[in-house]
Design a binder for these strands. Sequence first.
DNA 1: CCCGGATCCAACTGCAACGTTGGTGTTGGC
DNA 2: GCCAACACCAACGTTGCAGTTGGATCCGGG
Lengths: 211, 211
Amino acid sequence: MAWDVEGTKRRIYEAALSEFAEHGPDGTTVDRIAKRAQINRERVYNYYGDKSKLFSAVIRSELDKIAAAVPLVITCAADVGEFAGRTFDYQRAHPDLARLVLWEGLSDTGSVSDEIVRTELYAGKAKAVAAAQQAALIDDTLDPAHLIFLVIALSSYWSAAPQIARMLSGSDVRDSAEAAHRRAAVVHAARQIAAPRRAGTRHPDGTTTTG
Amino acid sequence: MAWDVEGTKRRIYEAALSEFAEHGPDGTTVDRIAKRAQINRERVYNYYGDKSKLFSAVIRSELDKIAAAVPLVITCAADVGEFAGRTFDYQRAHPDLARLVLWEGLSDTGSVSDEIVRTELYAGKAKAVAAAQQAALIDDTLDPAHLIFLVIALSSYWSAAPQIARMLSGSDVRDSAEAAHRRAAVVHAARQIAAPRRAGTRHPDGTTTTG
DNA sequence: CCCGGATCCAACTGCAACGTTGGTGTTGGC
DNA sequence: GCCAACACCAACGTTGCAGTTGGATCCGGG
């Protein structure tokens, strides 16, 4: 088996994922990707076009994976916590993803590759939230999109800004006790945000009404 | 006024801040900095050594400014919301700083400049939270450091991952109505996280006790 | 007027990375 | 066994940027 096209592509992909996550689109060199994948630089161009296309391919595929791995089904507020916890777990298991998203955000110049497809994907999640809100399963104070976003933020920022997490908590994600502790905090916070109000409803502008 | 050394340095500094914030350390060229500052490239080397020294100088100085910008005083759960809102405002008002910090985080290789000083700063905030928890002003389920972190995450992720915010909410931060909407969501969520439990306490592991 | 320091400028070296190309070896169909 | 297509690779041309240098220019003070 001298030719292993799929294997070669996969190795390029994996090497690219690591390199991009570590150094970002600008800091990454095609040569290092090739070295890491143990193939010739030219193969990269042959299979993926150029560096930016490779970056797009990687980020898109990784986002597809997380979307598939962490579905969102809501029957109660605790489900939102569960979603947050699983997102947290996924981020921890795939620290490269959080960094990719950040690199993408920093390079953001008004729009992003596959923006339309990805928008649809988020719209689906927002729809699930909206449905749960209408069924009064969860708090309906927040805009569904904002609620989703905030929950993702809670789960993702740990790996997005590890230096802040480290300075605050004093320890490292690699400490699994600390990781469990963090996860619990994320789940708890997400539940609190989603929990339906009991007596009165506190609106985002600070006023409170009774329903 | 042919000689305005301080002025020249300052113009280099400001140009560097903008360029670094926009393109990151790798994506920035000394030439563009010089053009923007309307000085010769050679001046940059004369005053700041080289590009990486200039970057360090900029980030360090900007972080000094951040330090005292958003104090944290807690007398009730709403104060935590207030803190979140002000952090959000700060991020929005100083997008350059937010991006610099992110770039720093991405380049993070185990520790960060001024890490000790900044750790103290966060410790102070955590202490304020701990005191408020002991006085039963806010929920004491969460570790103080984690609570702070989560609130910062809520406030910061918008500018950290603007592409996701855009895909979810469909509009842009520059739309000030949307910005206000987002801010309200952040404040609300932070309050919910900090709000003291009424009847029972739901622990992060999912169990519930009555106090 | 002349000196010394600040600034500007253009050209240069050196290098690193992008993306390409021509050639070599490999495979599978005929 | 031959050949066309394909995988692989080394070397190349090009570009863009970092950082340097030598000199021209400008300015204030003596």
